[in-house]
């Protein structure tokens, strides 16, 4: 029932490089690759919603002039448990001969920053061995999570947040095509809230439009209130204010009812810790415990127990004074 709903971000994802808004420099480079039918391995880095996946897919589309099937595969690095899977699929794919005039095939590896170092190490050899027939586009949010040898094998493209006016124009274009009325103020609000993340902006617009069939200041507010990542913030907030049991209950709800992957929860808690009013020493303590928790969960530890211990630590740290302040 849910799936029949068209998601605007996907519906309006540019298919070709020429359809992309902004990103002129990057697009120019990529179009040169298309023209020369050659390219190095690429590494796209930048925050969420800044055209990385879009550019990769558009490059592939243009490179093969639309005949993409058989010429590329898209792997999500975080799903392909164990490097063996990646390896075997890559090998299998690389062995077959390229179909058209382009002498190589392309492998897109999304979410590379959530792979282990081991996996990245293994990739290193693969990238070299099959480079004649296969080029990689690696995608990551954070560069420091990619090991140096991989970085050195790629041309690194940095994607920065999209400028406000580019997002605003895009929203207007989509609203017009969807035949949805909008208040100028409402769109500005969306742009401001989405902080250069095009996906977020489009999602806000679609959510707001779902309420009364128009994008108004009120509907935008309603939707943002509903969608916020706020739920994980609550886990942290409760622990921070010393209410450990409530924090753990909320955690359980996220883990077991909402089905949010533990790794994402740890990631958000990390953000919260960095922003919280701990002393530097406290922050260092909590972060090193958090690192330990992440390691343990990845090694098969129970996410609930491990994260609960972290929350207990957070809950006992804040001094009385700070609790009252916030």
């Amino acid at each position: 029932m849910m799936e029949t709903e068209q998601v605007w971000t996907e519906k309006y994802r540019p298919r070709r490089l020429s359809e992309m808004v902004d990103r002129e420099e990057i697009v120019k480079r990529l179009e040169t690759f298309v023209k020369t039918k050659n390219m190095p391995h690429l590494l796209f880095v930048g925050p969420p919603g800044t055209s990385k996946t879009t550019s990769a897919l558009a490059l592939v589309y243009d490179m093969y002039n639309g005949n993409v099937s058989g010429n590329y595969i898209e792997l999500n690095a975080s799903d392909e448990r164990g490097i063996d899977v990646i390896r075997s699929r890559v090998k299998e794919f690389a062995r077959s001969v390229p179909l058209g005039e382009v002498p190589f095939k392309i492998i897109i590896l999304d979410e590379c920053d959530s792979t282990t170092e081991e996996a990245q190490q293994a990739l290193r050899r693969t990238m070299e061995r099959y480079s004649n027939t296969t080029r990689f586009i690696l995608i990551a949010n954070e560069l420091y999570k990619i090991i140096e040898p991989i970085q050195s094998r790629c041309a690194v493209f940095r994607f920065s947040p999209l400028p406000d006016n580019a997002i605003l124009e895009r929203l207007k274009e989509i609203a017009t095509k969807e035949n949805i009325k909008y208040e100028e103020e409402a769109l500005k609000m969306i742009v401001e809230k989405s902080e250069g993340d095009m996906r977020k902006a489009i999602n806000f617009a679609q959510g707001a439009a779902a309420i009364e069939g128009a994008i108004t200041v009120k509907s935008v507010k309603d939707f943002i209130g509903y969608a916020g990542i706020g739920k994980i913030d609550q886990v942290f907030e409760k622990a921070f204010h010393g209410d450990l049991e409530a924090a753990i209950n909320t955690l359980n709800n996220l883990l077991y009812n909402e089905g949010i992957p533990p790794r994402e929860i740890i990631r958000e808690i990390h953000k919260n810790i960095m922003q919280a009013s701990f002393s530097s020493q406290e922050k260092a303590d909590v972060v090193s415990m958090l690192a330990d928790v992440e390691y343990r969960v990845r090694s098969g530890g129970d996410p609930e127990i491990q994260i609960s211990a972290l929350l207990a630590k957070i809950s006992m740290l804040p001094s009385e004074k700070r609790r009252k302040q916030s």
Binding site: M2, T9, E10, P48, L57, N141, Y226, A227, P261
Partner: peptide, 23 residues
Amino acid sequence: KQKYHETTRTIVFETLPLLNFIS
């Protein structure tokens, strides 16, 4: 994730809430 070419994070925090909201 496959269908929308998105990361886990995006699906969990944005796409799923949006789809639920719309329905």
